[in-house]
Design a protein around this nucleic acid. Structure first.
Lengths: 124, 124
DNA sequence: ATGAGAATAGTATTCGTTCCTATTTTCACA
DNA sequence: TGTGAAAATAGGAACGAATACTATTCTCAT
């Protein structure tokens, strides 16, 4: 792993804010320092930084939406190897929701818990 | 809202499985019944069925990934109006994880809680 | 029966992201 | 301090899930 100016700039930018920026926002900021930096470089660096644990990527996962024909209060667990999705009961109670509302000032309307792991078949 | 064959077929398909199918899987199944059904129709119907509460869409939200330069155990709350994201502490304890493992047979490696609501600014 | 408008089929388009490759840059080692 | 091999980048092409567009078909209240 080599120390490049691009890498340092991208890391500084993503660390400089708590606004959870998008890749293209990081790209725009980076261009102020390195005008001809490439968007592909930003994507590659963000991915690499994530592998190293310096950055967390939200809403990643498979980019395909999946649909559930059994609506109702339940959550999901996704197999990290084969993508199989199973239903699980919700573990978040009313007290937790109220705590979040008080801490953030947000008015909570809903929440979603996603679990990740290995399904029984993929555990071998 | 009109009763069309396409609508009924898509609803039957998405209700017939608990595998949380993708839109193109639903499309392939639907083509076995209506060979010239359009993929756009499948997308539109799934969206409409979701609005009616008959179907739940997973992993939806903005299609852009967002990045967090402050790694560490915390979760997020997303404003449904302006997209603002704030950090919140995790509310899932060890006992809940064990319960999920026993219920599903999955080996849990991580989880993610996403809260949705209105940020203070958007509550007016 | 019929006509207005809702829904569809087929296709083009959008846009976030990834891939490709010639060129540049970094850094271990002489 | 040079030098060369490997790694990283810039720029642009390609990909793919999802959406937009529009002429045509279908539904259903009357």
């Amino acid at each position: 792993m080599r120390k490049t100016k691009q890498r340092q700039v991208v890391l500084d930018i993503v660390r400089s804010t708590d606004a959870h920026p998008t890749a293209d926002w990081v790209y725009e900021q980076a261009r102020k320092v390195i005008p001809n930096i490439s968007l592909g470089t930003v994507y590659r660096l963000l991915g690499r930084l994530q592998e190293e644990g310096l950055v967390v990527q939200l809403e990643a996962g498979s980019r395909k939406s999946r649909f559930d024909g059994q609506p109702g209060p339940h959550q999901h667990i996704v197999c990290e190897r084969c993508g199989r999705i199973a239903d699980v009961p919700d573990v978040v109670d009313r007290a937790a929701t109220e705590r979040i509302e008080q801490l953030t000032g947000y008015r909570v309307s809903t929440h979603r818990v996603e679990w990740f792991g290995l399904c029984p078949k993929c555990q071998e």
